[in-house]
C-alpha cells in the first residue's frame, strides 16, 4: 500500500506536563515529519524555559472533537442538576465541616 505523498509535514498537537503530579495540558501545535521529530521540535518550541518535565505529541488528525453546534444537547442538561454539587445540601452547623 502506498502512503499518500505528503508535501507538508503533518500537524501534531503538543501536550506538556509542567511538573510531576500535574496533568499534561494542551499547549499548541507544530508540523513534523514523524512522532520522534515532533517530540524533538516540541521540546525546542514549547519548553525553552523549563516549562515541562514530560511531553506528549498526538497527530492532529487523530483527535475527534465535539461539534460546537451540539453544545446545547451535550452540556446544557447538566445545568439544572444542581443536586450534583455539595452546596445543594444543608447540613446543621453543629455537624461542622463535612
Amino acid at each position: 500500500m502506498n502512503t499518500p505523498a505528503l508535501k507538508e509535514w503533518p500537524l501534531w498537537e503538543v501536550f506538556v506536563r509542567s511538573k510531576q503530579g500535574l496533568e499534561h495540558k494542551h499547549c499548541g501545535s507544530l508540523h513534523a515529519a514523524d512522532a520522534a521529530q515532533a517530540l524533538h521540535m516540541a521540546r525546542d518550541v514549547y519548553t525553552r524555559r523549563q516549562e515541562g518535565v514530560s511531553i506528549w505529541v498526538v497527530p492532529s488528525a487523530a483527535i475527534t472533537a465535539s461539534n460546537p453546534d451540539d453544545k446545547g444537547e451535550l452540556f446544557d442538561p447538566a445545568a439544572d442538576k444542581i443536586y450534583r454539587h455539595p452546596t445543594f445540601y444543608e447540613i446543621p452547623e453543629e455537624v461542622g465541616h463535612m
Binding site: 502512503t3 505528503l6 509535514w9 513534523a32 515529519a33 514523524d34 521529530q37
Partner: peptide
C-alpha cells in the same frame, strides 16, 4: 532537509 525527513518517515511507515 524537509524532503529527506518526509522520505525517511515514508520508508519507516512502509
Amino acid at each position: 532537509v524537509r524532503d529527506a525527513a518526509l522520505a525517511y518517515t515514508r520508508k519507516q511507515q512502509q
